[in-house]
Nucleic acid binder design. Structure first.
Lengths: 204, 204
DNA sequence: TACCTTAGTGAGTAATATTTACTTACCCGT
DNA sequence: ACGGGTAAGTAAATATTACTCACTAAGGTA
């Protein structure tokens, strides 16, 4: 009992400065370079610590990436939830999610870059805490869709999973150009266009 | 004139056996492993050549990946074009593209894996020949959309780029689960659902 | 004081991508 | 048929870089 309490406080305690510095360093470096071309030496140098310390706090380089992603995701998730909780209509909720997600990616390109381009190629990402957050986010969308169908806002012959895929895919693809090439993106306009297609349809 | 003719025949000539073996080897290895955990030693061993030969034909390991992708894309592109050329209606064309692309990804998971997960994180991919093919494919879709708007099949207040993003994003996201986790995918059903949402709309 | 834990170091090691100098075989004009 | 040039392929060296390990310094606590 005492150990578990101790472990608990440990988890809640702010991480050691070195760990924070390392995570910030990677985050910063990823504004300019892709993950694979950033070396552990780079990370240690910009963090102002030695390479060895990285492996005190992270299983490997990838694990560091996942934890950085996780940190970003935490704030992202809170932001999303705060935006939709007041809304009643499920179409409205979904529209807000689309707009807000797009805006979040746009504001925090490193976050978007990691999530959309850098982690998905390694199988063990899908075992990480970061991916658990994605599942929660994704689940939220599905729940709203199902609610919308039940309450008659969304057509009942729509497949909920397909609709979620269209929503998520549209968001991701829409910000890809921005994330990769640094193009400016008018999130309000783009999200409106996307919602227009998804909810009203493209066919005349 | 003679040199250019010579160069020309050279380009059309089948590549040396070693080069083919190397490309096939990587393609084969990627059925089981992700690109980063495949070593040049692995590739050389399964190809039955020495590591050095890889660097005779490819600038680096990534360049090999791009050329493999390019090969796959070539057959993909031909397949797509052959499928849509007979159709007249642009909605029909887009539907065929969605279904056919999804099916192609599903049949050739290595191709899908490389395209959707493995190359996008490195900036120099976007300078490669493989990416040129993506641009052509992507351009085709945009042209069809514009044609559809002009001919009154698609609503004129639809933003063509946004529609393309929704289409491409939906396709990609739909096959992600399959590519990553090896889940089975009923391409006919899924593509029908997607088309339903995109063209008819989800809102009641 | 003595001890234990945590943060941090720095010099290694091993894996692996890339380079380089070399060999072998083949094509082609004379 | 011969010799020069070129393309295919090799084998070993090198360089980069992720990762390990044995250690030190600084608090805190009994």
């Amino acid at each position: 009992m005492m150990e578990s309490e101790q472990r608990n406080t440990q988890l809640l305690k702010t991480p050691p400065p070195g760990k924070i510095k390392i995570m910030n360093a990677l985050s910063e470096l990823m504004r300019e370079k892709d993950f694979n071309s950033i070396t552990t030496a780079d990370i240690a140098a910009t963090a102002g610590v030695t390479e060895g310390l990285i492996y005190k706090y992270f299983r490997d380089k990838k694990d560091l990436l996942y934890q950085v992603l996780n940190g970003h995701f935490q704030t992202f998730q809170n932001y999303i939830v705060s935006k939709i909780e007041t809304r009643k209509s499920s179409i409205e909720k979904l529209s807000i999610i689309i707009k807000t997600t797009l805006k979040s990616y746009s504001i925090n390109r490193v976050f978007a870059r990691i999530l959309l381009l850098e982690v998905r190629n390694s199988p063990n990402y899908f075992e990480s805490d970061a991916y658990d957050m994605v599942k929660i986010y994704s689940r939220t969308i599905l729940d709203i869709i199902n609610q919308g169908i039940k309450e008659g806002e969304i057509k009942e012959d729509i497949d909920p999973h397909a609709l979620r895929q269209v929503i998520l895919g549209s968001i991701e693809h829409a910000c890809l150009g921005e994330v990769i090439f640094g193009k400016e993106l008018d999130t309000d306009k783009v999200s409106e266009h996307i919602c227009n297609i998804i909810f009203i349809g493209a066919k005349k």
